[in-house]
Amino acid sequence: MDVSYKRLFKILIEKDLKKTEFAKLIGIGQNTLAKLSKNEYVSMEVLVKICRGLDCSIEEIMEILPERKEV
């Protein structure tokens, strides 16, 4: 898990939007929504749709986590 979409879900809570409502609104599928919920990689196209739908920048919806070094 190298990315986190907690910021996105915090925005949705603040706007009182359910995940499924938001997905339908911006035109992303349930599989993509599941990936976002699991902090998995999604395409740049999806990230652009989200940013346009929320009128925000990419930094406001996701975070790139520091690389974990294995011992």
Rank of each mutant, 00 (worst) to 15 (best):
S4Y: 02
S4Q: 01
S4V: 07
S4P: 01
Y5K: 01
K6Y: 00
K6S: 02
K6A: 04
K6D: 03
R7T: 02
R7D: 00
R7Y: 11
R7Q: 06
L8W: 11
L8I: 09
F9T: 04
F9Q: 04
F9Y: 10
K10R: 15
I11L: 04
I11A: 00
I11C: 02
I11G: 02
I11K: 01
L12C: 05
L12I: 06
I13S: 14
I13Y: 13
I13C: 06
I13V: 15
I13F: 13
E14Y: 08
E14C: 10
K15F: 00
K15P: 07
K15Y: 12
K15D: 11
D16N: 15
D16H: 14
D16Q: 15
L17G: 07
L17S: 02
K18S: 14
K18L: 15
K18A: 14
K18P: 13
K18R: 15
K18E: 13
K19Q: 14
K19R: 14
K19Y: 15
K19H: 15
T20N: 13
E21T: 10
E21R: 12
A23L: 10
A23Y: 07
A23S: 15
A23I: 06
K24G: 03
K24L: 11
K24V: 12
K24N: 06
K24E: 12
K24Y: 00
K24C: 06
L25G: 00
L25V: 11
L25T: 12
L25D: 14
I26L: 11
I26G: 07
G27K: 05
G27A: 05
G27L: 04
G27I: 11
I28P: 02
I28R: 05
G29K: 08
G29P: 11
G29C: 07
Q30G: 07
Q30E: 12
Q30I: 08
Q30R: 12
N31Q: 09
N31I: 08
T32E: 02
T32D: 01
T32Q: 05
L33K: 08
L33T: 02
L33C: 12
L33V: 09
A34L: 09
A34W: 03
K35W: 00
K35V: 01
L36D: 09
L36E: 09
S37G: 10
S37V: 11
S37W: 02
S37D: 10
S37F: 06
K38D: 06
K38I: 08
K38W: 04
N39P: 00
N39Q: 01
N39S: 07
E40C: 04
E40Y: 07
Y41V: 10
Y41T: 06
Y41N: 06
S43F: 00
S43D: 08
S43N: 05
M44F: 10
M44I: 12
M44A: 14
M44P: 03
M44K: 13
E45Q: 13
E45A: 05
E45R: 11
E45S: 12
E45N: 09
V46G: 07
V46R: 07
V46S: 09
L47D: 10
L47E: 12
L47K: 05
L47P: 04
L47F: 03
V48E: 15
V48S: 13
V48Q: 15
V48W: 11
K49S: 00
K49Q: 08
K49E: 01
I50F: 02
I50G: 02
